[in-house]
Design a protein around this nucleic acid. Sequence first.
DNA 1: TGTTAATTGTTATAATATAACATTGTGTAA
DNA 2: TTACACAATGTTATATTATAACAATTAACA
Lengths: 132, 132
Amino acid sequence: MLKQETLSKNQQIVLDYIEKVNEPIKAYSILHNVQKKGIKAPLQVYRALDKLVEIGKIHKIESRNAFVACKNSNCQISKATAFSICENCEEVSEISDSKLSKYLKNFQDKAGMKFNKYNLEFFGLCKKCSIK
Amino acid sequence: MLKQETLSKNQQIVLDYIEKVNEPIKAYSILHNVQKKGIKAPLQVYRALDKLVEIGKIHKIESRNAFVACKNSNCQISKATAFSICENCEEVSEISDSKLSKYLKNFQDKAGMKFNKYNLEFFGLCKKCSIK
DNA sequence: TGTTAATTGTTATAATATAACATTGTGTAA
DNA sequence: TTACACAATGTTATATTATAACAATTAACA
Ligand SMILES: [Zn+2]
Ligand SMILES: [Zn+2]
Ligand SMILES: [Zn+2]
Ligand SMILES: [Zn+2]
């Protein structure tokens, strides 16, 4: 079977909603908001999320247990992700910095481990929240 | 009140256990293993974990919902953490690389956000698992 | 010693995620 | 076309992770 190029029904419903809200959103919040589309159970959401993460359409913000649409055409397979997270307003942005990603892709640890993926989360105050 | 320099009873029990096992461990697994010391409820564990993370004695491996003792005298306040994680055997090591930490501490994103903390998780295969 | 904050104990519950199993759809090739 | 394999779905139940709420106790300090 060839690599799937179209999303399944549930996958598309979940992705559409995540792209629409345009900010990190939690699985059960997605569930509540797509019930009118016929998705009834957590598993239906989690299965769609798993696939969407796998193909790089969305990312999981691990420290928040939340999911966000990918804004970066460079990370289509979710293997090199970086985010900035405001600890005050919880705004999250995907960082797209070629120098940073190059640095991290080439990083070699002392134990000689071979990496194929990384996730980086920066925390601080966004511009708006810094002023207050 | 001055900054606490000694751990409380529950904090010490939980830390002792995490340091003993010397690998990432989950909250409820900690709970099961410290019940003989008198800790009976999840909250007692989670409260101790929160404090230990805050003071940098342990770190949370976000992608695994697990906790591990700090191996790096440089990150006593848990503000700059990096880990390598084997996706096969789940071995986790704390990365202590001054060049990496310097690079990340000084990283400035395009939105002008001021960072005060980061967490980086690398995934791959450890040396042992690469051979197989 | 009185005051304040930190810590503890306890019960209940919220929030996040997966197991198990039966069924249906979809692409591929004989 | 039909048979096969695999992906996706539907459904119920349950596992796992984490916090709310409130009362009681302990530790630090002026
Ligand atoms: Zn992305
Ligand atoms: Zn903010
Ligand atoms: Zn550390
Ligand atoms: Zn390994």
